[in-house]
Write a protein that binds this DNA or RNA. Structure first.
Lengths: 346, 346
DNA sequence: GTGAAAGCGCTAACAC
DNA sequence: GTGTTAGCGCTTTCAC
C-alpha cells in the first residue's frame, strides 16, 4: 500500500530547480530567492510532499528528538513534568519520547539503549537512583549526549540539573504546624530515599529553630512511598501512648493511607488531628482538601527542556548548571490550631 | 564532541567479514552461521557499537515508531491508556511518541504533520471529534498509515476501533440507584459530547426498563466536562423545588464539582444524597470514595496497540475491526438506599 | 553462507 | 543564488 514516496527530487523536478535549491527552500536554511522559495513551497504543497525527518536525521545526525525517563507514565506527578517538557520541546521543534522505567535497572538500561539507537539528541530523567541509570548516563555523556536531571536522583552525574528546594518546602510545612501550636508532630518518612532525606532535613531545621526536641516515637520510617505504608504507620501512631496532634507525611501516597486510617477510626480533621502532605497532585481534589507542599512540576519540566535544548544547540559546551525552584506550602482544610484541638477534646 | 560514530562497517572490518554479513548478524535476519554471528556480536559489544535505527528507518521505511494523540498528557485518564499502549509497544519493539492536542484543530494538524515527517508507522488517537482530526486521519489512510481509535470520537474514520461500552456502564449505574429505591435521580450531562450522549442512552435504557419517566427538571446539560460546571449544576439542583435524592454525573470532573457544592451546603453523603460518577480515576482516593463507573483504560490502551501493530505488520490489509470492552460499576461509599435516606430525614 | 555494490532522501561542499 | 555530486549507515538483490 505504501505508495512511492514523494521526495525533494520530485519537488525539484516539478518546480524546475536543482535539488539543493529545493532542499534549502524546504529546510529553511541557506540562500534562496524569495521568488523561487515561494514557487517551491507551492509545488511541494500541490504534490503532497512530506518532509522526511528520518533522512535528515541520518544525514545531519540532528534527529530533533529527546528522550524522557520517568518512573511511571500513569503517575500524574510525572506527567505534569512531562507536560512542561513537551510544551517547550514542541515550541522549539523537538519531539519527546516518553518512557517508564518502573524504577527497574533492566528497563532503564533497555530504554537508554533504545534512546541511543534512535539517536536522541538529549535525555531528561526524573527517576530515583539506580545503578543502570548511573552507568547509562555515564555512557551517554561519553558519546556526547547531554543528560538533564529533572527532580531525579542527585547522586548521578548530569549535564545540568533542575530540582525543587525540598528542604524549604518541608521547612515551611513544619513551621506552619509549629506556629499553629503543635508540639507532638509526627513525621512519616521513607528509608533509603534521597528525596525523603532532604525533606526530612527541612523538618529538622524548623524544629531546631523553635528549639523543639525531636521525639523518636513520632518519627516513623517506612519502606516506600505507598498508600498501604501510610495506612499502617498511621494505625501504629494512633494506637501508641504518645499520640501526635499533627502528622506531616513526606509524600502524597503516604497521606492517602493516613486518610484511610483516619476514616476508619473516625478521627476528625483538623479538630483531632492536623495533616500535611507533600506533592500536591490529588491534594486539592480530596475531601477535605489537603494542606500540602506544592512542587512546581510543570515549571520543572519546562526548565529541564530549556536547559537541555539550549545545551544541544550549543553543542554541549556550556558549563554545568543547577537550578533550584522554590516549593510552596498551600494551606487548605486539614490543618488547624492546637488550641481548638484541646478545647474540642474536653 | 560527537565522536565519529561506530558503524556496521567498523564492526565488519574488525570481525573480518563483509558488511552485509555484519548487517545480517546485527539486524537478526537472513542467513549467518552461528559461529560468525557470535563473533560479530562480540566485536560489536567490544568496540561499543550502537545500532542505528535512523539509518534502518531510511533504508527500510520501518521506523518502529507509532504516534499517540490524546487531549492532555497531564490527565491520568489518558495516561492510563498511554501506559497500556507503551507496555505493548515496547514489548514488540516499538517506540511511542505521545502528544497532547488540547482538543485544538491547529495543534492536531501540526501533530499529524510531525508524525508524517517522522515516518511513524501507525497512529492511535483518544480524542473527541475535531475537523483536523477527521481530515488528517483521512490523509494518513491515503498514504498508508493505519489509524486506531482508542476511546476517541467514533465520528472519524479509523482502521480499527476499540472503545468501552459506555451505554452498559451507565445503565448499570442507573440500575444500581433505582434498585436502592431512588426515583428522583438527577443526571448531569454535557452538550455536544458524543461520549456523554452514549452514556445518557444507557441511563435512559435503565429508566425505561423500570418504567420510570424521565423528569426534565432533573436532567441538566452543561457546556463541558469541568469542575466548575459540576459545582454550578449542583447548586441549581439543590436549590430547586424538585430536589434529587441521587445524582449521576457523567464524568469525574463534574462529580468533583458536585462534591464541592455538597461540602459547602453540608449535605451528607450518602444519607441525604447518593452520588455516582464515571471515569474512576480519582474516585477510589476521594473521601468518601466514590461509587463510580470504571472504564478499563489500561486494557483499552493495550488493545489499541495490539490492533495497530498487528495491522502494521500485516501490511495494513486486514478488515476493519471493532472491539468493545465492558465498563463496570464499582460500588463504594457514596450510594445508599432511599429508605435510610427518608428515615434519616425524619 | 557470504560479499560487492546500489540506493533509501536528505544536506553540504564546492563550482558556476 | 543555484546546481552537481558525494555520502550519512543501513539493507537488499544478486553473484559467488
Amino acid at each position: 500500500m505504501t505508495n512511492k514516496l514523494i521526495t525533494i527530487k520530485d519537488v525539484a523536478r516539478e518546480a524546475k530547480v536543482g535539488v539543493s535549491t529545493a532542499s534549502r527552500a524546504l529546510g529553511g536554511y541557506g540562500y534562496v530567492s524569495e521568488e523561487t522559495r515561494k514557487k517551491i513551497q507551492e509545488v511541494a504543497k500541490k504534490i503532497g510532499y512530506q518532509y522526511n525527518l528520518v533522512a535528515k536525521g541520518l544525514r545531519t545526525s540532528k534527529t530533533l528528538t529527546i528522550g524522557y525517563v520517568m518512573p511511571n507514565i500513569a503517575n500524574p506527578f510525572f506527567t505534569k513534568i512531562a507536560r512542561g517538557i513537551q510544551d517547550i520541546a514542541f515550541e522549539l521543534g523537538y519531539n519527546v519520547i516518553l518512557c517508564n522505567n518502573d524504577n527497574d535497572t533492566i528497563k532503564t538500561e533497555r530504554l537508554f539503549k533504545m534512546f541511543f539507537s534512535n539517536r536522541v539528541e538529549g535525555i531528561i530523567f526524573s527517576t530515583p537512583y539506580n545503578q543502570s541509570l548511573e552507568k547509562m548516563t555515564e555512557i551517554a555523556k561519553n558519546i556526547g549526549i547531554p543528560v538533564v536531571n529533572c527532580y531525579g536522583s542527585t547522586r548521578v552525574y548530569s549535564s545540568d540539573c533542575i530540582i525543587g528546594n525540598s528542604e524549604i518546602g518541608c521547612y515551611k510545612a513544619m513551621k506552619h504546624l509549629i506556629e499553629l501550636g503543635h508540639r507532638a508532630i509526627s513525621i512519616l518518612k521513607v528509608r533509603n530515599s534521597g528525596i525523603s532525606r532532604k525533606r526530612f532535613q527541612g523538618c529538622l531545621k524548623a524544629l531546631d529553630e523553635y528549639g523543639i526536641d525531636k521525639e523518636p516515637e513520632l518519627i516513623l520510617d517506612v519502606d516506600d512511598f505507598s498508600i498501604i505504608n501510610g495506612y499502617l504507620a498511621a494505625k501504629i501512631l494512633m494506637s501508641q501512648a504518645r499520640k501526635p496532634t499533627a502528622i506531616l507525611a513526606l509524600n502524597e501516597q503516604l497521606a492517602l493511607g493516613i486518610l484511610q486510617t483516619i476514616r476508619e477510626e473516625s478521627i476528625s480533621i483538623p479538630d483531632d488531628l492536623s495533616l500535611v502532605s507533600v506533592d500536591d497532585v490529588l491534594a486539592p481534589y480530596l475531601n477535605p482538601p489537603l494542606t500540602s507542599v506544592s512542587i512546581p512540576t510543570y515549571e520543572l519540566g519546562k526548565g529541564a527542556a530549556s536547559l537541555l535544548i539550549n545545551r544541544i544547540e550549543n553543542e554541549n559546551k556550556i558549563k554545568y548548571r543547577r537550578i533550584e525552584l522554590d516549593e510552596e506550602l498551600v494551606v487548605r482544610a486539614t490543618t488547624g490550631g492546637i488550641i481548638n484541638n484541646i478545647q474540642k477534646r474536653r
